[in-house]
Simulated scan of single mutants.
Amino acid sequence: MDGERLFCDVGLARRIEHAEARFVAACSDAARARRGGTAGFTRPLAGGVAAFAEADSPFNKVAGLGFAGLPEDLDEVEEAFAELGAPVQVELCHLADPSVGAFLTARGYRLESYENVLGRRLGGPVEEATGEVRPCRDDELETWLTAIADASTVTDTEGLPSHEDLTREIIVAALRDMAGVRRYTAERNGEFAGGASFRVTDGIAQFAGAATVPVHRRRGVQTALLRTRLAAATAAGCDLAIVTTLPGSKSQQNAQRQGFDLLYARAILVKGTSATRSSGAESRQAS
């Protein structure tokens, strides 16, 4: 990696948000497939996507708006969420068309929180990971899912608090439904210490699903997992890696130490009754 900082213009933000929308859609579809195709939906909306996977799913949201005009058919989407007893959560990039934010607030959407999107160019050398990090084997999947979920329920206290409150069962289901991800396991002294994953979408490596077992925190576990994934994403031909974090969190600090730049913030806008919500982002997991 060279020393030049990564600058995010509207074009790059559009590319990242479109990749995020594709990730949300794929995960929502995977959740419904797991449940046998029962109630839910994935539908295009003004260049983005609106999705409902299952009750309290991290993938019940609207993503990718703001780069293809106003969501004129939002009435139908709001009705679809209401029929399923869920609020509408919109994640809106601050580089999106400002008219979209005005459109949403005029309809009664309220600002509930923020999240940060960070990115790093790929293609140059990556520092070698220290510690024991390896791909998660297929026969380890259930152990990996439960261990990451358990670790995720013990959240870090640095940075802004999350607006989400997920049960262990919801986290396990969300991690299972992350379609197309590559999972990694980190060990310390022969014990499971943490894990993380990433997905490739249109040349973008989307880092997600990271957590460290509390007793192993502050021991470089997430640094090792970040470096391993950076190397793997580079080998996969990606030109960009992105990660989403809570503002001021340990996850954000870890990412910036590994060369990620803060690209933009997403506003979390909600209409309807609040419910437990999340996404595939690393910020939702303890680091």
Rank of each mutant, 00 (worst) to 15 (best):
E187I: 05
Q89Y: 10
R188E: 13
T244R: 12
A275S: 12
D202A: 07
A235M: 07
T42L: 02
L84I: 05
T276Y: 15
E83A: 15
A173P: 02
D165G: 13
A46P: 00
S113W: 15
A86M: 05
A25P: 01
D56F: 09
E78R: 08
E115N: 11
D239T: 14
R217Q: 05
F103D: 02
P247C: 03
R284H: 11
E20K: 15
G180P: 02
L104C: 04
C238H: 03
T244H: 10
G159P: 04
L118H: 01
R257T: 11
P214T: 03
R217V: 05
P125V: 06
Q256Y: 07
T143W: 12
N254P: 09
V181D: 08
R176K: 14
G48K: 01
N116P: 07
R176T: 06
T276L: 15
V117L: 11
A53E: 04
R15E: 09
V181P: 01
A267Y: 11
A33T: 10
A255E: 01
A205M: 05
P247K: 04
D29H: 15
V133H: 00
T130Y: 11
K250H: 08
L65A: 00
A179D: 11
A129P: 14
R277D: 08
F81P: 03
A19M: 04
Q256D: 04
S162C: 10
G280D: 05
A51G: 04
A51Q: 02
D139K: 13
G119H: 03
D75E: 13
V117T: 12
D165E: 12
R266M: 08
Y184R: 00
A21E: 03
E83C: 15
C8M: 13
E78I: 05
C238Q: 04
I204D: 03
G36Y: 04
F7Y: 13
L104E: 03
F67L: 01
G209D: 09
A13Q: 06
R257F: 06
A96R: 01
F103P: 02
S251G: 13
V213A: 07
R168W: 05
W144I: 10
I204H: 05
V172G: 07
G259A: 09
A208K: 14
M1K: 13
T153H: 13
A265L: 15
I16V: 15
A30L: 07
I171R: 14
S113Q: 13
A281Q: 13
R199N: 10
T223D: 13
